[in-house]
Design a protein around this nucleic acid. Structure first.
Lengths: 144, 144
DNA sequence: GCTTGCTCCTCCAATCGCTGGAGAATGTAG
DNA sequence: CTACATTCTCCAGCGATTGGAGGAGCAAGC
C-alpha cells in the first residue's frame, strides 16, 4: 500500500486501532471523528492522529464510557488549556456506575448460588431453581 | 372493576406483577405467555396463574436471564415431571456470566481509580484521565 | 490492456429487550 | 349523556453497533 504522508485506508486504520471497519464508519456518522479526508477515489484516509483517536475511543468504550461522555472527553482532549474537572467528574461518575453494578451483580451471584446449591438435581417439580423463581415471584416488589 | 373468576385486565395484571403494560404485550408477542383469553370487548384477561407467570419472568429478567433461557425455564415449569438438569445448567451458565462480568468490572474499577487518583485536577494538558485514555490507546490490545 | 480478487463505497435492515406515541374503540362513574 | 380512564393495534425509536447487498475502485499478474 502506498502511504502518502502516512495516510492509510479504513481497513488499515481498523487493524491498527483495533476497531472494526463498520464501527469506524458509525463513529464518523455520529460525529465522534469529524469528517475524514477522502482520496480521489472517495476512500476515507486516516493519519496517525486519527488512528490514535480511534484507539482512544475504543479504550474509553472498553471502560464502559457512554458515547456522549466520550464526546465530552474528546472535546476536552482537543482543548488542553481547559480545567480537567469535567473529565474528572465523568470518570468519577463512571466509577460510581461500575461500583453500583458490581454490588448488584454480587447480590445476583448470591441468589444464583442459593438457587443452584439448594437444588437436589431431581425432577422439575422439586427443582430449587424453578422454585426460587416462582416463590420470589409472589413477593411484593418495590414499585417504581 | 368486575372480576369474573378472578380475571383482571392488563393494567391490574401489570400492577400486581410489577411488569409494565407494554412489556406484557411484548412478552405475549414473542410467545412467552401463550395467547391470553380476551373479553367481549377484545381486552386481554389475566387470571392468578397468568399474573404469577408474569412475576416469574420479571424475576428471571432481574436475575439477568436472557429471554431464550426464560423460554426454556418456562417450558420446564410447565412440565414438572422432567429432570431439572437443564434448569440447573441454565442457572450455572448465568452464574458463570455474572462472575465473569464482576471480574471484568473489578478490573475496570481499578483502572478508573488509578485514573482518578493520579489526576492533579489541573488543566486537561496534565489530566491523568485523558492521559491514561490516550496512552493506553497506544498499547497492543488483545483481539477478540 | 485485461482479468482476478480484494477493499472500499453507500444504504439499509437486524440485533436485544423493551418503551412510548398516535389514533381509535371500549368501559366506567357521575 | 358526558367525561375520563383504560385498552386496543400498529409502528417508530432507543444504544451501539454489526452485517449484508450491490456496485465501484484499485493493485498485481499475465
Amino acid at each position: 500500500m502506498t502511504e502518502i504522508r502516512g495516510d492509510v485506508p479504513i481497513g488499515t486504520a481498523a487493524r491498527r486501532s483495533g476497531v472494526k471497519v463498520p464501527t469506524i464508519r458509525y463513529w464518523e456518522e455520529i460525529g465522534l471523528l469529524g469528517v475524514s479526508p477522502r482520496s480521489e477515489g472517495n476512500r476515507r484516509l486516516y493519519d496517525a492522529a486519527a488512528v490514535r483517536r480511534l484507539a482512544f475511543i475504543r479504550h474509553a468504550r472498553e471502560l464502559g464510557f457512554e458515547v456522549e461522555a466520550i464526546r465530552t472527553l474528546l472535546d476536552l482532549q482537543d482543548n488542553p488549556g481547559q480545567p480537567c474537572s469535567p473529565a474528572d467528574s465523568i470518570a468519577r461518575a463512571r466509577l460510581a456506575d461500575v461500583e453500583a453494578r458490581i454490588a448488584q451483580l454480587e447480590a445476583l451471584k448470591h441468589e444464583l448460588r442459593r438457587m443452584i446449591e439448594g437444588c437436589s438435581h431431581d425432577t422439575i417439580s422439586h427443582c430449587r431453581v424453578i422454585e426460587v423463581l416462582t416463590d420470589h415471584a409472589e413477593c411484593r416488589h418495590h414499585v417504581r
